[in-house]
Amino acid sequence: MKNVFKVLLVISFFYSACVQAHVDLVSSIPMEGSALTKAPSQITLNFSGEVRLAKVMLHMDNGKMISLDFAMSMKPDDNYTIAIKDELGAGDYTVNWVAMGGDSHKISGDFSFKVKQ
């Protein structure tokens, strides 16, 4: 019986490690590939689990960086809203983000959207 308990304990550790390692971005506002008729005033990132958001950058397709009201998070969360400081004009935009999962595993990604006039 002790051996069965030990096996179950080891399996539970491996399972919890796998679950933590698979935290990722599940949705965003604006959505990936969206074409907006009104420029957004903020970016929302929703993750599948708690992360510490380390970096968020917004830039136009010509490389121009757009100012965001963002500071690295010290407290893990699964939902972040970042204000865009400048009004966005028509054009193509990309959001790049970097976060740290609960197991200190670095995750990153990007998504793009378009503002039409």
Rank of each mutant, 00 (worst) to 15 (best):
V26K: 14
D61L: 13
F14Q: 12
S34P: 00
M57S: 14
K75I: 07
S12N: 00
N46E: 09
C18M: 04
T44R: 06
S28C: 00
I66K: 06
A17M: 08
S48E: 11
M72G: 02
N46G: 00
L53Q: 08
V26Q: 09
L9D: 01
V7L: 09
S34K: 00
H59L: 15
S34G: 03
S28W: 03
M57E: 11
G49H: 02
S16T: 08
I29W: 15
P40A: 05
M65S: 14
N62P: 06
Y15M: 15
D61C: 04
F13N: 09
D24A: 14
L9E: 08
L53Y: 06
D69I: 07
Q20G: 07
L58A: 13
L68K: 04
S41E: 14
M31W: 02
S73K: 04
D77Y: 04
M31E: 05
P40T: 07
D77K: 02
A39K: 01
H59N: 14
F5P: 02
F14I: 15
V23Q: 07
L68V: 08
V19A: 07
M57A: 12
T37Y: 02
L8G: 11
G49E: 01
D69G: 10
R52I: 00
G63F: 14
V51G: 04
C18R: 05
S67L: 14
D69R: 11
F13E: 09
S28V: 00
K38Q: 03
E50W: 01
F70L: 07
S16P: 02
H59I: 09
N46C: 01
I11P: 06
M65A: 09
V51Y: 03
F13I: 13
